Amino acid sequence: PKCKGCFKAIVAGDQNVEYKGTVWHKDCFTCSNCKQVIGTGSFFPKGEDFYCVTCHETKF
């Protein structure tokens, strides 16, 4: 599969995040607002966007 963030291949051994059939490298899975890496931490999906806890609390 290819990462939705950088469009490069995800190979065995890469740390990745999967959500609803889409996959990202862990470092490519970032907050849509502040761009900080969410990685495998908590996040809030809103449509096609993903927000870290801090930005979600501030924005919504």
Rank of each mutant, 00 (worst) to 15 (best):
P1K: 15
P1E: 15
P1M: 15
P1R: 14
K2G: 15
K2T: 15
K2E: 15
K2F: 15
K2R: 15
C3H: 01
C3W: 01
C3T: 04
K4Y: 15
K4I: 15
G5W: 06
G5N: 14
G5L: 04
G5H: 07
G5R: 04
G5E: 11
G5Y: 09
C6P: 00
C6H: 00
C6L: 00
C6N: 00
F7I: 11
F7M: 07
F7S: 12
K8P: 00
K8N: 08
K8W: 06
K8E: 04
K8I: 03
A9M: 03
A9E: 10
A9L: 03
A9S: 03
A9F: 03
A9D: 10
A9H: 03
I10R: 10
I10K: 01
I10D: 15
I10G: 04
I10F: 02
I10N: 05
V11P: 12
V11L: 12
V11D: 09
V11N: 04
V11Y: 03
V11H: 07
A12Y: 04
A12N: 02
A12L: 11
A12K: 14
A12D: 14
A12P: 07
A12V: 11
G13R: 10
G13M: 12
D14K: 05
D14A: 09
D14S: 07
D14G: 11
D14Q: 14
D14V: 03
D14I: 12
D14T: 13
Q15P: 12
Q15T: 11
Q15S: 10
Q15C: 01
Q15V: 03
Q15E: 11
Q15R: 12
N16S: 07
N16F: 03
N16D: 10
N16T: 13
V17G: 03
V17Y: 03
V17N: 01
V17R: 13
V17Q: 12
E18W: 10
E18H: 15
E18V: 12
E18D: 10
E18S: 09
E18I: 01
Y19F: 03
Y19C: 07
Y19E: 15
Y19G: 12
Y19H: 09
Y19T: 12
K20A: 08
K20Q: 10
K20R: 11
K20L: 05
K20E: 14
G21P: 02
G21A: 10
G21M: 06
G21V: 07
G21S: 10
T22N: 15
T22G: 12
T22Q: 09
T22I: 03
T22D: 06
T22C: 13
V23W: 12
V23I: 12
V23F: 14
W24S: 01
W24K: 03
W24T: 13
W24M: 07
W24D: 02
W24L: 06
W24Q: 04
H25G: 01
H25Q: 03
H25Y: 01
K26D: 12
K26P: 13
K26S: 15
K26W: 04
K26I: 02
K26C: 14
D27K: 13
D27Q: 04
D27W: 08
D27T: 12
D27Y: 12
D27E: 08
D27C: 06
C28F: 01
C28E: 02
C28H: 05
F29R: 07
T30P: 14
T30I: 14
T30A: 12
T30R: 14
T30C: 15
C31W: 01
C31Y: 04
C31R: 00
C31E: 02
C31L: 00
C31A: 02
C31M: 03
S32E: 04
S32L: 07
S32A: 09
N33Q: 15
N33D: 08
C34H: 07
C34P: 00
C34S: 00
C34V: 00
K35Y: 07
K35M: 08
K35I: 02
K35W: 08
Q36I: 12
Q36C: 09
Q36G: 14
Q36A: 09
V37N: 06
V37Q: 02
V37H: 11
V37W: 05
V37C: 05
I38A: 02
I38Q: 03
I38G: 01
I38N: 09
I38C: 04
I38T: 03
G39P: 06
G39Y: 06
G39H: 08
G39T: 06
T40K: 12
T40P: 06
T40S: 07
T40L: 10
T40Q: 09
G41N: 05
G41T: 04
G41S: 10
G41W: 04
G41L: 09
G41V: 06
S42R: 12
S42L: 07
F43Q: 09
F43A: 09
F43G: 08
F43T: 09
F43H: 04
F43W: 09
F44Q: 14
F44P: 05
F44L: 13
P45Y: 02
P45F: 05
P45M: 01
K46F: 14
K46S: 06
G47R: 07
G47S: 06
G47M: 04
G47K: 09
G47I: 14
G47C: 01
G47H: 14
G47L: 08
G47Y: 09
E48M: 14
E48Q: 12
E48H: 11
E48A: 08
E48C: 05
D49Q: 13
D49K: 15
D49I: 15
D49V: 09
D49A: 05
D49E: 14
F50W: 11
F50E: 03
F50Q: 08
F50G: 02
F50Y: 15
Y51P: 03
C52V: 00
C52E: 04
V53T: 11
V53N: 00
V53C: 11
V53W: 07
V53I: 11
V53Y: 11
V53G: 13
V53H: 13
T54N: 03
T54L: 06
T54I: 08
T54Y: 03
C55R: 02
C55L: 00
C55W: 00
C55Y: 00
C55P: 00
H56Q: 04
H56G: 10
H56A: 08
E57G: 05
E57H: 15
E57W: 11
E57S: 09
E57Q: 05
T58S: 13
T58N: 05
K59D: 05
K59M: 02
F60E: 11
F60H: 03
